[in-house]
């Protein structure tokens, strides 16, 4: 998909955070770290407390009325003309690519174009707009990366995670074999087709295990939960962590 932004814009003072439901419920520290990373760059963060989910699970399952209702509830929460940051390419992609289709022919269709243009995946925003300059304070370590399919093929930002990690002096980044292949999460796919999903995640987990890395880093918690869960089930020593949390942990001075 060829998406070019109407405006890349200068560095903004204030942004919205779209925390995503998965981070809200399972990986809140990724969301907190996102706020820290943004604030350190001098960006004020607004987190509308009424936000819930972007609607993607229903959209991908064919429940368009339900997806539309949920999406519409989010749409109203981000009225100011400032960027919306999602620490997930999957949710950012939903808003950016699918909202305009979902709202096609609806009275509020036009506002989806505006919101779609303002939404950024976190690593995309850190590199392209904030142009962050990171200083690594952590111990030497080796990490494996997993870019989500939405980061790769929907948002076209798969390389941003690499650009950020490569700024960290003590981090060795390894890309697993078959990196471009889906981990088998696919939202409700993992529940509806668990046998295929399992075959896919086991292959992915093996490729990551083969890197010999200490940690698995990704920009999407769905994939991380899936691959991380498989690694853990196999008693692997590789832990998984969201890029925001990893970056913040390694680059801020702990207050004594």
């Amino acid at each position: 998909m060829d998406f070019t932004r109407a405006s890349a814009g200068p560095k903004p003072n204030t942004v919205y955070l779209f925390g995503t439901c998965l981070i809200d419920l399972l990986y809140p520290q990724a969301g907190v770290s996102t706020v820290h990373l943004l604030e350190r760059e001098g960006v004020n963060v607004i987190f509308p407390q009424a936000q819930t989910c972007c609607g993607q699970p229903a959209w991908n399952s064919g429940y368009r009325d339900e997806a539309l209702a949920v999406a519409r509830a989010q749409l109203k929460l981000f009225p100011r003309p400032i960027p919306i940051i999602a620490p997930s390419a999957s949710c950012a992609g939903m808003i950016r690519v699918h909202y305009p289709t979902l709202f096609k022919g609806e009275p509020d269709e036009a506002s989806t174009f505006d919101v779609a243009d303002r939404v950024y995946e976190l690593t995309e925003f850190l590199t392209d707009i904030l142009k962050v300059d990171l200083t690594d304070l952590g111990e030497p370590t080796t990490v494996a990366t997993h870019s989500s399919c939405t980061a790769r093929r929907e948002m076209n930002v798969a390389d941003r995670i690499d650009l950020l990690l490569d700024q960290l002096q003590n981090v060795t980044r390894i890309e697993p074999d078959n990196a471009e292949e889906c981990c088998g999460f696919g939202g409700t796919f993992a529940i509806k087709q668990p046998e295929i999903s399992t075959a896919m995640v086991l292959e992915k987990a093996k490729a990551i295990e083969n890197t010999g890395a200490q940690q698995l880093i990704g920009q999407d918690c769905g994939c991380l939960m899936n691959i991380g869960g498989a690694l853990k089930k196999q008693d692997s020593q590789i832990s998984h962590v969201h890029i925001a949390e990893f970056l913040w942990d390694r680059t801020h001075k702990a207050t004594p």
Binding site: G184, G187, F189, Q193
Partner: peptide, 8 residues
């Protein structure tokens, strides 16, 4: 349902 919508 036999798709993760990965886009490959």
């Amino acid at each position: 349902q036999a798709s993760t919508l990965c886009g490959a």
